[in-house]
Structures are given as structure tokens and as C-alpha cells.
Amino acid sequence: MVSGALLAKIVVQGKGRELADMMERRKVDILCVQETRWKGSKARSIGAGFKLFYYGVDSKRNGVGVVLKEEFVRNVLEVKRVSDRVMSLKLEIEGVMLNVVSGYAPQVGCELEEKERFWSELDEVMESIPTGERVVIRGDFNGHVGEGNRGDEEVMGKFGVKERNLEGQMVVDFAKRMGMAVVNTYFQKREEHRVTQEWRQKLRQALGGQVVLPDDWETTAEVIRETGRKVLGVSSGRRKEDKETWWWNEEVQDSIQRKRLDKMKWDMDRTEENRQEYKELQRRVKREVSKAK
């Protein structure tokens, strides 16, 4: 019944019906959305029998919401719009009190103060929920809890991704404080489903923001190839010799390859350390090219 972390820019772009159709097709009744980028504190229909409750203070960043199938709208008892990163709905369904919390944690590169404020707000929401009521938190927590669960077996399974970072540790610490569990670490996901939303969004931007990417990687790859053929055309495959590549020696090639790898590392985990490593390699590549020429 409840699903979530979905990047909701399609709602902002006037394509809320696509979101509603997806929920209808996948039989999702309640969905948490983040980065809605809608300014205001309202509720509105998005079509196909679904209603979006949302909150945002800036049309350019953040924003959270919860989408409900309209048959559950009358079950809503309370809406708490805490900030543009945290909101919750309380529903009574068949005599059971259910609290649905939508959260959007600050990204890796944000200030520590902003991250601590988010977790403080989430703590306050949890503390305000009476004992005995059910709680589901769905959102984008912008962190990696890591693979394996040694020492944290009570709150997570073995199927996290990557190595745990600071943001992932905050998720684990919160789960321990609240006696909750990081549910999606208890089952193994197919490799193509481990692709981050960050890369999906970058791909959308590269394709002009007009493509809704499917979950299946083979289908996604075909969408990319077809878009490339339409936009860029198809070359003959014969490479034209570049008269200026006489300086392209092994040292330059090695530096450029390491720069590309560091750029990928920084894109995936935007820490200050990764940024400095990438900047230093940029400078090194320029020196190597100049020396070779």
C-alpha cells in the first residue's frame, strides 16, 4: 500500500497525471514524494483519483509531499507540515492509526548544521506520535548505510549499497533511537535497481528533461541509444586523424584517465576531499599536456 522515495519533478512540470497513472498501474495507494519544488502549503488533485498534499517554501529547491488515493483522503485526521524537508499525515484505516512521514535529507555537500536540523525535525515528529500508533517513514535520505550489518543487526539487513558514509550513519543512528528498521536492506535488489536517483536525474537533464526512464536497464539503454540516434545522428565509424595528437603520450593518457575516475567519484559522493582530489588532478593534467607539447 505504501511506497516512496520518488523524485517528483514530473509533478512540478505539469505531468502529475503520469505520476497518478504510475500509482494506478502499480496499485500504489500512498506515495511519499520529495523535491517537489512547489511553493505553498496545500492539497490538490493530480488526476486519476489521486490527491497530493505538499509543502514547500521555495520553487527552486526542496519540497515534500504525500500522494493519496482519493478514497483514503476522508481518512486523513491530521497533516503536519514541519518544513520543506519533513511532513506527515495521520490516517485512520480500518480502526488502525497510521502515520505516514515524508522526508528529504540534505545532500552530501550540504552544511552539517542543515543536516542536524533535518534529523532534529524528524525526531520531533516521531516524539509527537502516541505510543501504539503505526509509523512508516519514506523518503530520500541521501546516504549509504553500506553493505553488511555487523553490529547493527537489530535495525538493518545485509543488503545495503556501497560503504557507509556520514549520512548513512545518521540513518542507522536514527533507526536505533526510534526502534525502527531500514527495511529495504532486508532484501537483495537486482543490480539495475541499485542505480541512484542522482544518475537518473543527470541522464534526464542530458536528454533535455523530456524522458521518463523505466526501471528496467535494458529498456533504459535502448531509450538512450534511440535518443542519441535521433539527436546526434550516426557517424560512419571512421575516425578522422587529429593533427594535434602528436603529444598524446602515455603520461597524458594516464593523467586524463585518473581525472575521469576522480570526476566519477566526486559525482557519486560530493565530499570536500573528493572535490580537492579532482581539482588537483585537473591541474596535473594541464601540466602534463603543457609539458608534452
Rank of each mutant, 00 (worst) to 15 (best):
V183W: 10
V183T: 14
V183H: 06
N184T: 08
T185H: 08
Y186R: 10
Y186P: 04
F187K: 07
F187T: 07
Q188C: 12
Q188G: 00
K189L: 02
K189P: 03
R190Q: 13
R190K: 15
E191S: 11
R194G: 03
V195K: 11
T196K: 13
T196W: 04
Q197T: 15
Q197H: 06
E198T: 14
E198I: 02
E198V: 05
W199M: 12
W199R: 14
W199N: 07
R200I: 13
Q201H: 15
Q201F: 11
Q201E: 14
L203N: 03
R204M: 15
R204S: 15
A206I: 00
G208F: 14
G208Q: 09
G208Y: 12
G209C: 11
G209S: 09
Q210F: 04
Q210I: 15
Q210H: 12
V211N: 02
V211K: 08
V212Q: 12
V212L: 07
L213Y: 04
P214I: 14
D215T: 09
D216E: 15
W217T: 01
W217L: 10
E218N: 15
E218P: 00
T219F: 00
T220D: 01
T220K: 06
A221R: 12
A221K: 15
A221Y: 13
V223H: 06
I224K: 08
I224D: 05
R225F: 09
R225Y: 09
R225N: 07
T227N: 09
T227V: 07
R229T: 06
K230E: 13
V231P: 00
V231H: 02
V231E: 06
L232K: 02
G233K: 00
V234W: 12
S235C: 07
G237M: 03
R238I: 09
R239N: 00
K240F: 01
E241D: 08
E241C: 05
E241V: 10
D242V: 07
D242K: 06
K243V: 06
K243R: 12
K243D: 05
E244H: 04
T245G: 01
W246I: 07
W247T: 01
W247E: 00
W248F: 15
E250H: 03
E251Y: 00
E251W: 11
E251L: 13
E251C: 03
Q253E: 15
Q253M: 12
D254Q: 11
D254E: 15
S255N: 06
S255W: 08
S255C: 11
I256S: 01
R258K: 14
R258T: 03
R258P: 05
K259V: 01
R260P: 01
L261T: 02
